[in-house]
């Protein structure tokens, strides 16, 4: 009680003098650092648990009495080994990569053109088209997957990765376009006017003036599209049937569980390996990512 009172006193005086951020250290500890550390631990714990399970031998995994569950006494590569050499895991990774890269490239191409037309060519009603594209992002895949499944079936694309490459842009394009419209808006229009006066054609202006300046925007749209395609689940679950054509998230969930036997070690190893590509990409571009995320939300 006395300690609390002693802590409170200087705070009140500093507040009254109108100085910000001069709280005493113990108070700052309690109010900022302790909750923050608790938050970070909670956010990290499932990953820690994933990593540690992936490297634990089965003997330790199912025996909490003799081994502390929080640590690995004798790490093993057994689960990863099983995953890579006794399942189709490498094939799943490859399929996911191909699907993610193709749908990202397709979406970027479509979005750049659309965003440039809406923001720079400014045809009649262009802001309505921009709004419609934004609204398209609000249509969730859980509503679309049933009719899309019947379409995919009729088009003969069922069980083909092409079905995913064609359907993923439905949620990638609205988002990328929205993001790029915001990015193009930030590039001064005067630059294009100068080029126009110098006799450049509109295609040259777009290709040689605007796009090079928009590279950071293109990179973040690309990262978004790639991670969203990598994470996609419901379309991949509904449109793909044969094991070797499944994407990582679907395959880990449906192929690694054999009946009632859960190989938790391999499951966690599969989840871990499947998370690494997106985590790597994102760690390289984290600054683009955050700035465009926050920028897009502010729009």
């Amino acid at each position: 009680m006395t300690e609390a009172a002693a802590e409170k006193a200087p705070v009140i005086t500093t507040e009254r003098t109108g100085v910000i951020n001069w709280d005493s250290l113990p108070r700052r500890m309690m109010v900022v650092y302790v909750p923050l550390i608790l938050f970070l631990l909670t956010l990290l714990f499932p990953f820690y648990w994933m990593v540690i399970t992936a490297f634990k031998p089965n003997a330790e995994l199912y025996n909490f009495n003799d081994y502390s569950p929080f640590w690995v006494s004798s790490p093993t590569l057994e689960h990863i080994n099983r995953l890579l050499f006794q399942t189709d895991y490498p094939q799943w990774l490859w399929t996911t990569m191909v699907v993610a890269v193709c749908s990202t490239v397709l979406s970027l191409f479509v979005s750049v053109l659309a965003a440039y037309a809406v923001q720079r060519l400014r045809f009649k009603g262009s802001q309505w088209v921009g709004l419609a594209i934004y609204l398209a992002y609000l249509v969730p895949p859980s509503i679309l997957f049933i009719p899309l499944a019947t379409m995919i079936f009729k088009m003969g694309l069922y069980d083909s990765p092409l079905a995913l490459i064609l359907t993923y842009p439905t949620f990638l394009v609205p988002f990328c376009t929205w993001l790029l419209i915001g990015y193009f808006k930030s590039i001064p229009y005067e630059l294009e006017e100068c080029a126009l006066i110098d006799g450049a054609t509109r295609l040259q202006i777009m290709w040689k003036v605007t796009l090079p300046l928009a590279v950071p925007g293109l990179i973040s749209a690309g990262i978004f599209a790639f991670t969203l395609s990598w994470n996609e689940f419901i379309y991949a679950l509904a449109f793909i049937q044969s094991s070797e054509k499944k994407t990582v998230p679907v395959a880990v969930l449906t192929q690694l569980v054999e009946g009632d036997v859960y190989h938790w070690g391999s499951l966690m190893a599969g989840a871990l390996l499947g998370s690494i590509p997106v985590a790597l990409i994102y760690s390289f571009f984290v600054d683009y990512y955050v700035s465009s995320l926050t920028g897009a939300v502010k729009e």
Binding site: L43, P69, P249, V250
Partner: peptide, 26 residues
């Protein structure tokens, strides 16, 4: 970076980690 991690990792894969955290026995 730590804060954004749960958002980056594929939902299904982190859901599997939760599945294991919620295991009835272990």
């Amino acid at each position: 970076a730590i804060v954004l991690l749960p958002w980056i990792v594929p939902t299904v894969l982190s859901a599997i980690a939760f599945w294991w955290i919620y295991d009835p026995q272990f």
